[in-house]
């Protein structure tokens, strides 16, 4: 199990994966918006999305868990 965390503070702009999705390394899981930039959050390695812990427009803190991969 891997927890994918936010690298910086921002809001969740678009969620591009859902629980059960099989993802490859570097696949985009969701996109944050911070400082007017779209910041892709990608899978650190291949796996299956177990859980998405955030909702679109939600504000997240640096280090907050966004997605859990199996």
């Amino acid at each position: 199990m891997i927890e994918v965390k936010a690298e910086l503070v921002g809001s969740v702009w678009k969620i591009t994966s859902k629980p059960g999705d099989k993802v490859a390394e570097d696949d985009v899981l969701l996109i944050l918006e911070s400082m007017k930039m779209e910041i892709s959050v990608t899978a650190p390695r291949a796996g299956t999305v177990r859980e998405i812990r955030v909702k679109e427009t939600e504000v997240v803190k640096e280090g907050q868990v966004l997605v859990v991969l199996d």
Binding site: L8, S34, M35, M37, I39
Partner: peptide, 10 residues
């Protein structure tokens, strides 16, 4: 580097 943290400076 816009690909990392949007290229924001920290």
């Amino acid at each position: 580097q816009p690909m990392q943290k949007g290229g924001i400076l920290d």
